[in-house]
Design a protein around this nucleic acid. Structure first.
Lengths: 256, 256
DNA sequence: AGGCGCTTGTGAAGACGTGCACAAATCGCG
DNA sequence: CGCGATTTGTGCACGTCTTCACAAGCGCCT
């Protein structure tokens, strides 16, 4: 059976797309695999083993195989995975075959940077609108887009099919903006404001808080310091750090 | 036993700091609790119940209680938690009692925004140096700090006790910068570049990839679309989304 | 054609994280 | 002083995620 069947691949619209309900942890890793695969493709590789890909993505190879097995069987035993095919598959599953329109609300410090970030465009997204509540910012042109007032959201939504809203406003404004996004039909929100958003069921919110990331690192710093600072208390000073140190989300990595 | 003992609180240096080795998932939530607590303190609350705090932080109340119980017993049954005391405790555990110096490498689009982000300063960090490899950027002043060349890192490290390095360079430069940071003794790195870093054991790396967050949201969009688009295939159309939809890291929330 | 080395896909076990439900503890009030 | 209302802290069961280890499958070489 060398006939690779994409279960609902872009071209051939089968009866049921049959998106297998992937474990959330797997979904979170797929983009990482995708990035690594693009690198490999650019480097001219046509196939890659789970060992090779997992190294490039910074994960355990067994984990990678299990993740990919959830998408279906796209590897060849004894050979590895077809890079191009796997890219196509992952992009399909992630819904990246269509370029999704993103509305970015809040054109302050961070919003400016996001508006100019080319990583969005190069990885399947298109910033469709820039919005802000501050009238003095409305009209400003950033990266070829004119900032519109946030109250124009209904108009924007009528022009474009907005898939995702990005909130880069101060915390105080975030909830109101979220409500406005939800009101025009946005069902996925990426929130950079340091606050909790209430949204109706069916709306997904992901949060990115830069300060929180630093605070987590700070904890580990504190811990490392409290360990190495031990002069002679009980256990012997450990030159190598104790096991179980590798964090869930943290690479701890092998040099070489 | 109403005598609250901080197990290694700032002032009283006990024999052993005894940082309880917290579950990583707990550590990741503590900053969120801390933020919620600061809000409560500003609003004049002196105590808060686990129910109230968990709502403000967007988590389950049982989870919150279990998380806090790992720090020790700082609540009072029938009353709740002392807001000020809990803030002090969490800040101690996270190592925020000392203001940590952060070196930011890469003053491009994103780096600029990070340099101007006041969320760092207000939550326990101090940007101690801005660095870039591009000579044309060296000398530029941002937010009162002059950009220095990345090769000056050893000098910077000699002046300041750098705790954390932030990499906001293009992916191609990230590994080299990481090596330089490690070389001057930095043991915690926050990486915004879309690539995997190799670092020696004992160095913690956390990664933030903005495009990945969008891609995860894209998956959920795709999935929601493939569900609602089902015309009449097998099962009946679900008006309410199926269970198991709430993601690990995603709030799905109640809009009252 | 057959065997050998390599790689995938997966069963099973263990570690980890979550959430319920309840006993223990504390406060306030009569 | 005792009782009831309230809230913490936690034992337990369940689900998810990770990791090992290995059988099954594939291609290549002889």
């Amino acid at each position: 059976m060398s006939q690779h069947r994409h279960p609902g691949a872009p071209g051939r619209a089968g009866a049921v797309p049959a998106l297998p309900d992937l474990p959330e942890a797997t979904v979170a890793r797929l983009p990482e695999y995708l990035r690594a695969l693009h690198n490999l493709a650019d480097a001219g590789h046509e196939t890659v083993s789970s060992e090779g890909l997992s190294a490039a993505a910074g994960v355990n190879s067994a984990k990678l195989r299990k993740d990919l097995s959830h998408l279906g069987s796209y590897g060849t035993r004894g050979v590895g995975y077809d890079v191009a095919l796997l890219i196509e598959q992952i992009e399909y599953v992630l819904g990246l075959t269509q370029r999704r329109a993103v509305a970015l609300v809040g054109v302050g410090n961070l919003g400016h940077a996001l508006a100019g970030y080319d990583g969005f465009a190069s990885r399947g997204f298109r910033i469709a609108a820039l919005l802000d509540a501050d009238p003095s910012r409305v009209g400003e042109e950033i990266n070829g887009l004119v900032v519109r007032h946030v109250d124009d959201l209904p108009t924007v939504a009528a022009e474009e099919s907005l898939a995702i809203g990005v909130i880069a406003t101060p915390a105080a404004a975030a909830q109101q903006v979220a409500d406005q996004l939800v009101a025009v039909g946005v069902t996925s929100i990426l929130n950079f404001a340091p606050c909790v958003l209430s949204v109706p069921e069916g709306v997904d919110v992901r949060k990115v808080d830069l300060a929180i990331e630093l605070q987590i690192l700070s904890f580990h710093e504190h811990r490392k310091a409290s360990l190495t600072a031990l002069p002679a208390t009980g256990g012997s000073a450990l030159t190598a750090l104790p096991g179980g140190f590798a964090a869930t989300d943290t690479q701890e990595a092998i040099g070489t």
